[in-house]
């Protein structure tokens, strides 16, 4: 019986954590500014993008490996807002994603793609490393080894 309670409790805690918040670029900027010395790894993905889904575990690993360091992994979904309840949240629960997950709350692709990085064509997956004024943008997918190498290179 006690075990049952514990299971229930952990399930409740998990689903409470498995929230996907809407995030505008203004809110993201504010978060980055407030982050001071934190290094942010921002991965742009979508539930419908197979290479994105394939590389998410590497970002989860990066999150797990840096839990005690000033490093934040933000997984920003570009799914349509209408898919939040039907696709994105179920996906996050199913994959048990532990890094913070957001859904980008921006309407105008012309504006937001340019603002995230002028070099970005809009293809996903795409990833941004940011620490204060230092930033590096990648329009590509990563294997575990490639992400690790890029990460080490950024922190050199």
């Amino acid at each position: 019986m006690r075990l049952f309670f514990i299971i229930c409790l952990s399930l409740i805690t998990y689903s409470a954590n498995a929230q996907v918040k809407l995030l505008s670029l203004d809110e993201l900027d504010k978060r980055l500014t407030n982050g001071r010395d934190t290094t942010y790894v921002i991965n742009f993905w979508a539930t419908w993008c197979s290479p994105c889904v394939a590389e998410l575990p590497h970002f989860e690993e990066l999150h797990r490996a840096n839990l005690k360091k000033p490093v934040k992994v933000l997984l920003v979904s570009l799914d349509f807002k209408s898919k939040l309840q039907k696709a994105v949240i179920p996906f996050v629960v199913e994959k048990k994603l532990k890094a913070e997950v957001f859904l980008l709350n921006e309407k105008d692709q012309q504006a937001y793609i340019e603002r995230i990085d002028p070099k970005w064509s809009g293809a996903i997956p795409a990833t941004l490393f940011i620490k204060k004024d230092k930033r590096q943008f990648f329009e590509r997918e990563f294997t575990a080894g490639e992400l690790n190498a890029a990460w080490l290179n950024f922190n050199k």
Binding site: C49, I113, A123
Partner: peptide, 10 residues
Amino acid sequence: STKAVGCSIK
């Protein structure tokens, strides 16, 4: 010229 979210080329 315009930009759009799309699938990367395989």
